[in-house]
Simulated scan of single mutants.
Amino acid sequence: MFEDYFPKVIKQALEELSKIPTYGERTSSRFLYNFLKLPKEERDRLLESLIALNEQIKVCSECGLVSDMDPCRICQDPKRSKRFICVVEEPQDAYAIERIERYTGVYHVLGGRIAPLEGISPQDLNIDKLLERIEKNAVKEVIIATNPNLEGEATANYLIKLLKKRFSKLKVSRISHGLQFGSFVELADELSLEKSIEKRTSFP
């Protein structure tokens, strides 16, 4: 039987890798076998970096970014304006925007997007903390930078209605220009991201 010949250590590793969101059997298998092709010295360095990551990484209690400190470096920076909040789905989206070195506000990580088919509702997202930050810091503008796809648009529309209802004088805008529908913020090139933020759409 197949189970008699298949190494148990590989099976266990594949099972653990498959627990990573979006990592199915094929992706996990591709990653594992490519990892095994590396020289042992490189595998050791990779494992050491992952162990260090696991031990040192934190989640910012203010904005939700993954960082090596809490609050994160962005939230601690006195040069960053807390009156401008850019709302993103995941931490990697914020760091993608940081690459353009134009945005000088802070971020707020939702921790996902509204996806009814996956059982993800607004109550599952980090929205209450966003409302608290808006009140606490007298926020002037919230820039919604969810991904330009069906789930991202649904999340943006929900936030726009909620924020305009709760804070009548708050400026709420949505990045749009420069990003193709169905794409992801974290994968966008810097020029497209820059245009998307500069030409964001405001909602009355």
Rank of each mutant, 00 (worst) to 15 (best):
F167Q: 03
E151T: 00
A94W: 08
T155S: 04
A96H: 08
I100M: 15
T104C: 02
K165L: 11
Q92W: 03
Q76T: 07
V66D: 04
R30M: 11
E132R: 11
R174C: 05
I143L: 11
E186V: 01
R83S: 14
N54G: 06
E151W: 02
T201Q: 07
E132L: 14
K40N: 10
S61T: 06
L125M: 07
L50A: 11
E141I: 07
I143W: 11
D68I: 11
L14A: 10
N147M: 06
D189Q: 02
Q56R: 14
L130C: 14
K40R: 12
S183Q: 06
V139Y: 00
V142T: 06
S61R: 05
E42I: 09
R166M: 11
F84I: 04
T104Q: 12
E190D: 08
E3F: 09
L179E: 10
G112H: 03
I197L: 15
F203M: 08
Q92K: 15
S173P: 03
I10W: 09
R43W: 02
K136C: 08
Q123I: 01
P7W: 08
K19T: 02
V109T: 06
Y95S: 12
P39G: 13
P21E: 03
S168T: 08
T22G: 08
V88Q: 11
E41G: 03
P7E: 09
N149V: 13
L50I: 12
A156I: 10
E41H: 05
S168D: 13
S18A: 12
